[in-house]
Simulated scan of single mutants.
Amino acid sequence: MLHLRILSPAAMTDDVVANLECDDAVSGLAVLRGASLRPPGDIVLAEVAREAGNDVVDRLRGLKVHQEGSIAIEQVPTWLSRSGFEAEVRTPGSSADAVVWADVTQRSYEETELNWSYLSFMTLATIIASIAIVLDSQILVIGAMVLGPEFGAIAALGVALVRRRFVLLQLAIRTLVFGFVSAIAITFLLALAARGLGWITLDDVVGPRPGTGFIYTPDKWSFIVAVVAAAAGVLTMTSAKSVGMAGVFISVTTVPAAGNIALGAAFGVGSAIWGSTLQLFLNVSGMALAGWLTLAVQQRLWTRVSVRRARHLHIPRRML
């Protein structure tokens, strides 16, 4: 169940209410006349079956409510309502599978913001990954994978392509490139310092590493795992059942590859640099491709559900 809180200019409120009243997926509706100070107008509250969230929001966007006022969308984790249950029964699809595109798109913009927090997590994760490589520690590799914040920006690439948000696409590419380059550069400088202090030797980089050798030896399985993991990650991001995201983080070799690039550069080991670069490219491209395909399939399926639902609703054409 979704809760909508709409700040509506007084002149638009009747159209907003009419749009909501005629939809069987709306189980609760309230209007607080004159309660909004900015913009001057009313507050409209509505309870909507999650499966119909996109249709309702799209109609409100068609009225330009989001330009003159605002639409807040909240997931209701627990609710008790007979009318709400009946609304979900009447609405085609499953609430767990429903994709609320407004929510997914906003989260994508937030995940692609290039800020101090993103760069800090990316750098710290890459440093931990480089230490994991020196110690040949799979536990530290997993820790670096979980800490890395890059998945949100990679998933945003798919969202941008499917939803035709080309500004988001540019932001995601910028965040990924600048994030990885900055993290590798800082880790490279720290590796040089550790080399000068004698903390890291060439044998630590080129010697036998049974636990972490996969980082710089990409193969077909690297790409396959990235594709499967990204598809699972996108489904977790779009579904109401947000589980399994940690499994995605520890399945892809992006941050560890970045750490190995920094170490290879500090010791001039070309095989480590190029092998890890290829590993990084395979994982990012595989995740981006899988994210785009998964979202494209979801959009196609939910478009059909929306069309089928519209045939059973008695909504005036001017409101569609």
Rank of each mutant, 00 (worst) to 15 (best):
I315Q: 07
A87M: 02
A30H: 14
E86D: 11
V89D: 12
W274S: 15
L119N: 04
D58K: 13
A87G: 02
V243I: 15
T126D: 08
T254S: 10
G247T: 09
L278P: 00
G28H: 13
V31I: 13
D24G: 12
F223H: 04
V141N: 00
G158V: 01
R195M: 04
V31Y: 09
A160N: 05
G213K: 09
A183D: 03
V17L: 12
G34T: 12
A240C: 04
I43D: 08
S276L: 06
T201M: 09
L169C: 08
A52N: 13
S239K: 01
V284W: 02
D58R: 15
F214A: 12
S95F: 09
A30D: 14
L2Q: 08
A194L: 14
D14G: 09
I154G: 02
L140E: 00
A144M: 01
D23G: 01
G211I: 10
A10S: 15
L114M: 08
L29W: 07
T175I: 02
A98I: 06
G196P: 05
A156G: 04
L157V: 07
T78G: 03
A266Q: 10
T112D: 10
G179E: 01
M12S: 11
K241P: 00
S8R: 03
V26W: 00
A102G: 13
T126L: 05
L176P: 00
E68D: 15
G211W: 11
E150M: 05
S70C: 10
Q75H: 15
T187Q: 01
A183G: 03
L63Y: 03
K64Q: 14
A155V: 02
A52E: 06
T126I: 07
N19P: 02
E111G: 05
A160Y: 01
I273C: 09
V248K: 02
A240Y: 08
V141H: 00
D203R: 14
V255T: 12
T201K: 11
T13N: 09
V234W: 00
A87F: 00
P39S: 15
N283R: 06
P9D: 08
F281M: 13
S27M: 07
I43Y: 11
R165Y: 00
A129H: 00
M237G: 08
A310Q: 13
E111M: 11
L161V: 15
R107M: 03
P210M: 07
L80H: 10
A265F: 11
A290K: 05
L63A: 09
S94P: 00
I186Q: 06
S95H: 10
R59F: 06
R300Q: 15
V248A: 02
R318W: 15
D42L: 07
F180M: 13
D24C: 11
D15I: 07
L29G: 10
I215F: 01
V17F: 08
V307A: 14
T294Q: 10
M245E: 09
V134T: 06
I127S: 04
Q138G: 03
S271E: 15
M237T: 15
L168V: 03
V234Q: 02
P256I: 05
